[in-house]
Structures are given as structure tokens and as C-alpha cells.
Amino acid sequence: MTGSRILLGAAILGGLGAAAPFTPLWLISLVTLAMSTGLVVCGLIILWRAGLVPFGQALFFATGAYTVALSGRWFGVNDAFLLIGLAVIMAALVALLVGFLLAQYREIFFAMLSLALSMILYGVLVKSETLGSTDGINVAQASFFGMKPRGPGYTFALFWLALGMVFSAWVGVSAYLGSVAGQLAGAIRDNEIRVEYLGISVTRLVHLKLTISAALAGAGGALAALSISHVDPQMAYWTTSGGFVFVTILAGAASVPAAFLGALLFEVVRTIAVALLPGGWQLILGSVLLLTILFVPEGLGSLMIRKRANAAGKGTA
């Protein structure tokens, strides 16, 4: 990751932030929500590269979202930055705990075990009537360092916050993927025993990857909770996890920015489909995904990488 790429990324995100006041409000909330999905997908990429597909990432997503809702409700915490920090810590803590079990497993067993854990959270939330059961609870509007923007100002503030989170996630995850621990992901996928012979504990490495991806999912959940102003157990349900895996397939694991573009594309296609075909929008959504899998099997990110590689005259990897 070079300095010039960081500058380019900062310039693009800064440009988006500056363009916000001239953009329709509905589009801004839509992009904010897509960014929250992008953050989760960003974390999924870390696991994906090591050959791990969690079908229960909604566990950490919902942990982040409910942390925001309950910190406000029970402890009166109102600052958006503090709320997101708490959500990240809670999600990472949960991952650290369940990681002792999950990091022992690979492939379908990892996928199913993570799914089972997220469904336990779903079951507990559905049974807790004080938390509104399936109806969920509202999240109070947050403040930003003591400032309390309301109306359109709140939508802008959340959008800028989302851009900041996207930038930090992008820089952080790219740095991690470039580090030795990150580069070992491919080696873990291909041959764990060899990695062990290098003197590295694969279990510990997977545990770390899980915790990082959970922290990102927690951040995504917190952002979603703030932007929807409502949390419900559906956030921990397996279809939510499936949605994240879905966007990861759409985006591919090759590039971090693709995670956000994939999430945005998914949300835009969904909303256009709903407007176009009220009684059959799932048909359009399904078709787009089918076409993606047929024609861009390695995801949108592979298009960007391929272009770059072609320009360098090296051919596809």
C-alpha cells in the first residue's frame, strides 16, 4: 500500500463528502447503509482469503447494533464516536470468546458452527420481551462531540462518519492484508501444516483474523443501527449473514475497495428492483447475482485487479 494510493483514496472519499450537500437525501442514507454492509464485507474478506466462510457474521453485526441501542437506553451514552467504539470492542470481545472454539474448525464446520452461534443470539433476542422481541427497539439520535445535528444535518453527519469509517477500515485492512500475518492467509488456505512448520500457530492466526473481522462487523452494525434508528433480532438471523456472504461473492476477495462498491451496487440494485417490480423484485435481484456468478465469477474486484495487471503487461493471475 503506497502513499499515493492512500492519497487517492482520501481524495475520492473527501470528494464524496464534499458532494453530499448537493446529493438527494435518500441517496445519502442509502449509501450510508451500504457502507455499513461494506464494513462487514471488508472483515469477511480477511477470513475469505484464508479459505474460511462464516455463515454467522450477523452475530457480531447484531452485537454491534444492540450495543449501540442498549448503551443509549440503559446508560445514556449518546456520542456517536463513543457508541461505535463500544460496539467495536463488544463485537471483538465476543469474537475473542467464541474464537477459542471457532478457530479450531475449518471449511463447512467453521461455517455451520458460526451460523449456530449467531442463531443462539437470535433465539435469545426473540425470547427477551423487555428488548421488544422480534419488534426490536428504537435507537435514539446520537450526538457528535456535543453537537446535535437534526433533520438533514443528521443524515449528513452520519454519512461523513461513515466515510471516515470506510477510510480507516480501508487503510487498516489493506495494511493488515499486506503484513506477514495477512499474507499467510493464502498459505493457510493451501496447506496449514506447512504454515505450522514455519513456526506459526494457525489456530492463533485464525483467532486473530476472526477477531479483526468481528470488530469490523461490529462497526458495521453500529453504523447500521445509527442510520436506521432501530435494531431488531433480524440483524442476527442467518439470512442477514447470508446477505453478507452474498455481497462478498459479488465483490470478490481480491480488493478492499470492491467490498464497498459491491455493497453499494447490491443496495442500489435492490432499491431499483423494488421500485420497478413491487411484486417480484426478488427476480431482478436474483438475476443480477446469477449473471455476476456466470460472467464475473471472481467478483467485481477481479475486474479492477485484471485491468491493473493487464496495464502492467503481466496477464491475469
Binding site: 437525501l25 442514507s29 447503509l33 435492490r270 432499491t271 421500485a275 413491487p278
Partner: peptide, 23 residues
């Protein structure tokens, strides 16, 4: 204008904003 209620509450909030602010 008819809109489908299926989907998560996040989808519903997004579609509500679309109805009011876009449409």
C-alpha cells in the same frame, strides 16, 4: 405507488425514505 413490505426493517426504512424524498 405500491411498495413491497418484504425484507428487513433496514430495507423498509430505506424504501420509506425513497418514497418520501425521492418519489
Amino acid at each position: 405507488k405500491f411498495v413491497d413490505e418484504a425484507g428487513s426493517s433496514a430495507n423498509q426504512v430505506t424504501e420509506f425514505r425513497n418514497l418520501v424524498q425521492r418519489d
